[in-house]
Design a protein around this nucleic acid. Sequence first.
RNA 1: GCCGCGUUCGUCUAGCGGUUAGGACGCCGCCCUCUCAAGGCGGAGAUCACGAGUUCAAAUCUCGUACGCGGUACCA
Length: 469
Amino acid sequence: MTAPRVRFAPSPTGSLHVGGARTALYNWLFARRHGGTFILRIEDTDVERSRKELTEQILDAMTWLGLSWDEGPFFQSERQDLYREAAGRLLATGKAYRAFETPEELDAMKKAAEAAGSAFRYDGRARAIPAEESERRAAAGEKFVLRLRVPDEPLVVDDVVQGKTEFPAGALDDFVLVRSDGHPLYHFTVCVDDVAMGITHVIRGVDHLPNAPKHVALFHALDAPAPVFAHLGMILGTDGKKLSKRHGAAGVEEFEAQGFLPEALDNFLALLGWSPGDDRERMSLAEMVALFSLERLGASPSRFDHEKLAWMNGQYLQEIPVERLVALLKPFPLPAASEDVLLGAIHLHRSRARTLAELARSLAIYGADPVTFDEAGLKKFGKPGTASLVRELAGRLSAAVPFAHAALEEAARALAAEKGVKLGELAQPARLALTGVLASPPLFEMIEVMGRETTERRLLAFADRIAGS
RNA sequence: GCCGCGUUCGUCUAGCGGUUAGGACGCCGCCCUCUCAAGGCGGAGAUCACGAGUUCAAAUCUCGUACGCGGUACCA
């Protein structure tokens, strides 16, 4: 295939939704797979709803996801001349025409159609206005919109995902290209830009599928070949409704804030509507680039499963370099502990967390001493009689040389053997003393990281506490 | 209403005329074990939405129905 040119064209009317992120990802993968060009275009023609800071947020999210663009970002708001020129050309060649109906008149027509039980379609009555009259009325300052003269012929949308669908002649009405205030509309700017940018493949959500015939008609009018379309199935929430904030998180930056890794989100999102064909699921961007093809995209909608994303994130948490983990953890609240302790702790806890936020939270025990203790644990391992055992353990551990997990464990096992108790009967109270809970990484490795002083202090404090109760 | 799209374990999916319908998440059990994870092993879980056709043979092809989703703007 000759090098394709694709684009991702978000509107800065909200943050980058995961659905949009997936669209961007597929476009990016396709471009990279075939040595093509990935263009970023900001569709900010809706002046009322577009916001500058949202553009920044979208760009940041793209960068965070690792989706680098080759050209742009282009802003439609800065390309008005291009649209005006194209509109003039369509008008001059008769492919578009001025329509002078006021919004009120149109409204009345809509109401009438509704009353008659049929859908409103503009009847093209302004087509008949002679060119001179049209010029004269425009020059006289009469308001008008520009409408496309949709040819009376069937329109074919060739879609790699949805198949070829043919829209019969007359399915489309002469839709508006340019508003009466001179602002070009979405369908028009999209096509003008796609032509100007030499877009060869349009990969976007199915919500745009009904627009496709309009675009095909426009490409014809602009004397350009229609690009290849690929309309993706929607991403829904777990309840089958369109994914939104209601479902927990929908914006890419929210996932970042919750401690998901970009590679995990990329990987997860890629699998929502695409698969490499074999059973593999864990893939880096590079692997996905090598495997990607439009033909393997799915048309059916998919639900966003937070559980699976969390699992996948946990997988990545386990395998990325620890230095990177340290860097990624920076934005999260971490305990006041030395770099060494933190590093050791991360090693012990990374396989036990599914998000960076969880990981950071689990590291808290390396900071302040626990003040509350698991109730069930206290009931089971906090009997007064255990206090002396815990004190003795503290002494043995403090005396261990070196203060490393092997020696620590040996010391503890020796004590357990002397007392005729199982290791667990020693380890569990100790774990409770050290962490306040009954679940943690292996005790002795944790003790090694916490250090002699902390261990002894917590063990003795705990012994005092339960002895008195 | 009209137009379009979709429908394989709870979820994500493989499958593209002949399979014991495969994998993953989640769930359950076992192993490992000082606890919890991770990991290993195993299990439950899908009359392939439903109904007609075509065919020796259909999850796979055709049509219809149901349900879901999307669109129906001088929004994107």
